[in-house]
Lab assay of single mutants.
Amino acid sequence: HAATELTPEQAAALKPYDRIVITGRFNAIGDAVSAVSRRADEEGAASFYVVDTSEFGNSGNWRVVADVYKA
Rank of each mutant, 00 (worst) to 15 (best):
D18K: 15
D41W: 15
A3P: 14
Q10K: 06
V50S: 00
R63C: 11
D67A: 05
F48Q: 00
V50Y: 01
R63A: 06
R39Y: 11
Y17M: 04
A13V: 13
A32G: 03
N27E: 11
S37E: 05
H1Q: 10
A40C: 10
L6T: 01
V36G: 00
N58M: 11
V50W: 05
V36W: 00
A11Q: 03
D52H: 13
S54N: 09
V50L: 10
S54Q: 15
E9M: 11
Y17C: 08
A66N: 00
V33A: 05
G44K: 05
A45Q: 03
S59T: 13
R63E: 07
E5V: 06
S37G: 15
P8H: 13
S47V: 04
T23Y: 14
D31V: 06
A28I: 07
P8S: 13
A12H: 08
W62C: 08
Y49K: 03
Y49H: 07
P8L: 13
R39S: 04
Y17I: 03
T4K: 14
A40W: 03
G60W: 05
W62A: 02
V36K: 02
V33F: 10
E55D: 08
V51L: 07
E5D: 03
Y69Q: 00
Y17Q: 01
E42D: 09
N27K: 12
T53S: 12
N61W: 15
N58A: 13
E55N: 11
A35E: 10
A13T: 13
A2G: 14
N27V: 10
D41T: 15
D52E: 15
A40D: 02
V64W: 03
F26D: 00
A32V: 12
S59R: 07
R19M: 04
G57W: 07
T4V: 14
N27D: 11
V65A: 04
S34H: 13
G24H: 02
A12K: 12
A11W: 05
G30D: 12
A2Q: 13
Q10N: 04
S34V: 13
G57E: 10
R63N: 05
E43Q: 12
Q10D: 06
I29T: 05
R38G: 05
A32Q: 03
I29L: 12
G57T: 07
A40T: 04
F48G: 00
W62V: 06
V64E: 01
T4F: 14
D41E: 14
V68A: 01
E5F: 06
V65T: 09
S47R: 05
Y69E: 00
F26R: 00
A46W: 13
Q10W: 06
R38P: 00
R19F: 04
R39G: 01
R63Y: 10
D52I: 13
E9R: 09
E5N: 07
R25Y: 13
N61Y: 15
A3K: 03
Q10S: 05
D31F: 08
E42A: 13
V33P: 01
Y69T: 00
E5T: 05
D67H: 06
T53W: 15
E9I: 08
T23S: 08
D18G: 15
A12I: 09
P8D: 09
V21T: 09
Y49G: 02
G60N: 06
K15D: 07
H1G: 13
K70I: 09
G44R: 04
Y17E: 00
S54Y: 15
A46H: 15
H1D: 06
P16T: 03
